[in-house]
Design a protein around this nucleic acid. Structure first.
Lengths: 334, 334
DNA sequence: TTGTATGCGTTATCAA
DNA sequence: TTGATAACGCATACAA
């Protein structure tokens, strides 16, 4: 493992020239270039990125902060980020906030100290003050938010249209002939859950479907209890033939309950989830769902931060809203 | 955002003294210490980790290479790694090989160039030569393998006992009274799949259970085809009342098939999966499974590399084998 | 207890 | 086209 100095010694050139070759600084003769490259390979040259970053002021690293890596939604997005970043010769450093404001702040600080050139971040649920965001902005740190932007003006963000996703899912059930559709709702404190619920309700209204109290169900996640609830509802006059679940997880959960009480999916009831999780293809029937285009979200956010990194940039600010993709499988189609 | 120099200027002390305070080098008066700390806070001091690393030769970073981050097995392990590393004031950099030997090599190289102090790695499936591992070893890079060690002598490794996991799962079914157990096997090219199959077979032998050709099933993952296969087998004289699936995914898949052909789990057939995936708690009945103690694997591997980082270390080499944990839920128990 | 001076490996400026 | 040299921000050996 050699450095620039070793190559200089070996070739009899100066470190400056060697550095120029290694950075394609064009002002070198083909002869010396070849000589240097050959020596580099022979000596197993490994550039010291830290030294280069220190000197140049550019680390070629992008920092990524997500709530949780063990979450396929975020890890898919990270894949998009990594691909795009690598394609532009950038490396990424991933940090987790674990939905804690304190850890989030620490993570950001740590990225700053690691001299990342830019930051991509999805804000933790717990975070309620945004001082650090403001300080990042005023320090001129290139920063792009994805999926969960902060309530701060004039920021770059890439978000997913949860409302529309829910709307589309619901309309899909309507088109499949469902006459009475219920929504398995998520924890209302979470904003995306509220958006999905609203999308569901508006789709019903728009299509002149009636919306009763029993149209929105909050499950207890206690099996026998939920089974009773669903069975009772199914046999009541408020029965349903369509289900839009706020997530694939609850869709799976419900599918199992329906099987238990001998309701056939999709014959008797059609259902659709949200998230396009891996396991949604392993059920029988396979689950229809809404795909959030995670990979694209990561790619777009990265492209944006890469733009901000270019010296020429005018300080424009953009919000990109990703539209949902309907994934039709067996659970909503026959 | 200030540096060590700014603090020196502000306090009228030398950079050396400031540096000493910031590194707890003990040889400073309480007075100057207070002065420096106060100024540091006031000026919003952010250490330049790259400069410190360059000077000290220690980056306090551990590099982690995994095949895929979007895989709950690995991301759980990473959580264990991160926790342990952070607790010791180390940061981690995560790189993905995506099961490609080429990307794996690049990832390792990139970590070296980032001057990580040590490396944790789970080898990609595709990797078939181990030159880079040997060169890392001979360069004295502290390195610990987890889950998928390379076939190289004298390395530190933390692995999971897949054979034993399968054995325990099978014996569990036997204890639950199953008389005829089948195994849903995985792709035999993958070594852990072979180990699980062997554990299954040995558990049967040990308990004097007969093992026929139809005891080991390879699914096509074509729904209707697999449904027919299972239904036919279930109604044949080689019928079964216990299933050990090589993964939770195929366990879920099979559970759905059984429901479709009206076989009750766990009454008619008991089943157990492998991996303790999140969704295994969302099925009805909930899936029994084998937990691989991912968090511990990450923690142990990190502790090991941290030991190697201590100057005093004698070059001992250890293999740690993690035993499986049986998770009994409804699918194998009534 | 504190300060001076040097160097980590690289890039960038200036001169040749 | 190339070389000598300063500088990036910090840690540390040595001097005071």
């Amino acid at each position: 493992m050699a450095g620039i100095k070793d190559i200089a010694k070996k070739t009899g050139l100066s470190v400056a020239t060697v550095s120029r070759v290694l950075n394609n600084s064009a002002l070198v003769s083909k002869d010396t270039k070849d000589k240097v490259l050959k020596a580099a390979k022979k000596l197993d040259y490994q550039p010291n990125l830290m030294a280069a970053a220190l000197r140049s002021g550019k680390s070629k690293i992008i920092g990524v902060v997500v709530p949780e890596i063990n979450n396929s939604f975020f890890s898919k997005i990270i894949n998009g980020i990594e691909q795009k970043a690598n394609a532009h010769n950038y490396t990424i450093i991933i940090a987790q906030s674990r939905e804690s404001k304190e850890k989030e702040t620490k993570a950001i600080q740590s990225l700053i100290q690691s001299k990342v050139d830019g930051i991509l971040i999805s804000i933790s649920k717990e975070t309620d003050d945004f001082d650090i965001i403001h300080s990042l902005k005023s320090n001129g740190m290139p920063i792009v938010f994805f999926d969960r932007p902060p309530p701060v003006k004039n920021v770059n963000e890439v978000v997913f249209d949860d409302y529309k996703g829910a709307y589309i899912a619901t309309e899909h059930l309507i088109k499949q002939g469902c006459k009475s559709i219920i929504h398995i709702a998520g924890e209302p404190k979470v904003s995306i859950h509220r958006k999905r619920k609203n999308g569901f309700m508006d789709a019903l209204k728009k299509n002149s479907y009636s919306l009763s109290e029993s149209s929105i169900i909050y499950l207890s996640m206690n099996e026998s209890e939920d089974t009773k609830t669903i069975q009772k509802l199914y046999k009541s006059q408020n029965s349903f033939d369509g289900i839009f679940a706020h997530g694939d997880e609850s869709c799976l959960y419900l599918l199992n309950i329906l099987k238990t009480i001998a309701v056939d999916v999709p014959k008797n009831v059609k259902m659709i989830g949200f998230g396009n999780k891996k396991f949604s293809r392993l059920t029988q029937p396979k689950l229809s769902t809404i795909d959030q285009r995670c990979l694209e979200m990561g790619e777009i956010a990265t492209s944006r931060v890469l733009e901000l990194l270019k010296p020429k940039n005018e300080i424009s600010v953009k919000t990109k809203i990703l539209s949902p993709k309907l994934v039709i499988r067996k659970s909503s189609f026959d």
